[in-house]
Design a protein around this nucleic acid. Structure first.
Lengths: 203, 203
DNA sequence: AGATGACTGGACTGTCAAGTCCAATTACCG
DNA sequence: CGGTAATTGGACTTGACAGTCCAGTCATCT
C-alpha cells in the first residue's frame, strides 16, 4: 500500500491526497476520477500519488476506508444517545435533515462506493462491509441498552432490529437519491421506528 | 436516441446490443464497460452500435430502461399475489431465494446503476426512479387491496407502508451485497412484514 | 433483375488517463 | 555545515477507448 509517510509533512500530503480523491470520486465516480484531477485538487504531483499509493486501486481503497470513518464520525454525537427512544428519534431526525440540506443528492457514500466497486474489487467490498458492521453495532448496542433498562421488552431481538433498521436507512437513502426527495428516507425510518416501538412496554 | 430499427433484423440486432451491454455493465460497471467488449459479446460491429445509439450515454440509458423492465418482469408472477398476506410472504421468500442463488452478489440492478450514474446523468436518474415508482406502485396496490378486503385495518397508511417496504428491500439488498449474505435481506424483509402485520386485524 | 434503403463490417483517428522515470528540493541529524 | 533520506516536480511512454468514416451486403418492392 505505498510508502507510509514518516514526517509530518508527508502525513499532511497523504491526507490532502485522500481528501481530494474522496471529493473527485464523489463527483465523478471511482472509474471516472482521474489522478490528474486528484493531483490538481490536492494539490500534489503525479509522483506524490505514486509515492504514497501503489496504484489507483490502492488510492480508492484508502478512499473507502476514509469514507467509513467520515460517515460514522458524522453521527458520533448521536450514537451515544441510541440507548433511549428519544435519542433514536433525534438520530433519525438528524439523518433526514442532512438529506434535506443536500436536496437528496449523493445517497449514502458507503453504499455508493459499494455499488461501484463491490463486484470488481472484493477487498474494497470487505472494507465497506466493515463500515456497515460498525454502524450496525452502534444501533444494536443502543437497542440492547434499551432492552436492559426496560425501555424495550427484554425478549426484543435487538440483532434483528438493528439489521432491519440499518436496512431501512440504507434503502431510504437509495430511494431519496433516486427521487431527490428526503421524504422517502423519512418514511423508511418511520417504519423502522414503528417496528421498534412495537417492543416498547405498554406503560 | 439513434435510429429506430424498422426491420425485424434490425430490431433483433438492437436487442442483442442492449442485452450484451447490460451484461458487460453488470460485470464491469457503466464506466468500465467498453463498446468494443459490448460489440464482441452481442455480437455487433462498431457502426451498428452507433447506428442504433447516439453515443455511449445513449446506450447506457437504454440499459437503464431495460434493467427496469427486467427487474419488474422477474417479479410479475408475484405482484398479483401481493393482495394477500400469504402472497406477501411468498414474494419475500422469492426475493431471498434469488439472493441465495446468487450468493448475495450483484445487489439490486436498479440501485447499482443508480449509484454509478445518478449524480452525473440526471436523465438516467429519472429513468431509474421511475422503475422504483412502478415497483412501489405494485406493493401499494397489493396493500390497498388487503385493506379493502379487510386483511388489513382500513386506516393502515398503505402509501407509507409501501415506501417503507421497498426501502427495507433495497437496504436489505445493499447489506446483502456488502456481506455476501442473504440473511441481511431476510432480516430486512422480516422487519417490513412485521410492520405490516401490526395492521392485521387481531382476528 | 435491378433499384433502393436498411443494415453491417472494420480500419482509422484523436484524446486522455495510468503508470514510469529521474532529477531537484527539502527537512533532519550528527 | 555536510550528508542522508524523505519528499516533490513534471516530462514521457504506453495503451485503451470513444467516436468517425466509407465501402460493402442484404432484404424487399416493383
Amino acid at each position: 500500500m505505498g510508502v507510509l509517510p514518516t514526517t509530518e509533512r508527508g502525513r499532511s500530503t497523504r491526507r490532502r491526497i485522500v481528501a481530494a480523491a474522496r471529493e473527485v470520486v464523489a463527483e465523478k465516480g471511482a472509474a471516472g476520477a482521474s489522478l490528474d484531477e486528484v493531483g490538481a485538487l490536492a494539490p500534489a504531483s503525479r509522483s506524490q500519488l505514486y509515492h504514497y499509493f501503489d496504484d489507483k486501486d490502492d488510492l480508492i481503497r484508502a478512499v473507502a476506508e476514509a469514507t467509513n470513518d467520515i460517515v460514522l464520525d458524522g453521527q458520533r454525537d448521536f450514537f451515544a444517545g441510541l440507548n433511549t427512544w428519544d435519542g433514536l428519534v433525534r438520530w433519525t431526525d438528524f439523518l433526514v435533515a442532512i438529506q434535506e440540506q443536500r436536496h437528496g443528492q449523493g445517497g449514502c457514500p458507503i453504499a455508493t462506493l459499494l455499488g461501484q466497486l463491490a463486484e470488481q474489487h472484493d477487498d474494497i467490498r470487505v472494507v465497506l462491509s466493515s463500515g456497515f458492521d460498525r454502524w450496525e453495532a452502534h444501533i444494536r448496542d443502543g437497542l440492547a441498552s434499551m432492552a436492559a433498562s426496560g425501555e424495550l421488552e427484554p425478549d426484543a431481538d435487538v440483532v434483528w432490529l438493528a439489521t432491519s433498521t440499518l436496512a431501512s436507512l440504507e434503502g431510504g437513502l437509495v430511494l431519496t437519491q433516486a427521487r431527490r426527495d428526503p421524504q422517502a428516507l423519512r418514511s423508511a425510518l418511520d417504519g423502522a421506528l414503528a417496528l421498534i416501538a412495537t417492543y416498547r412496554p405498554t406503560a
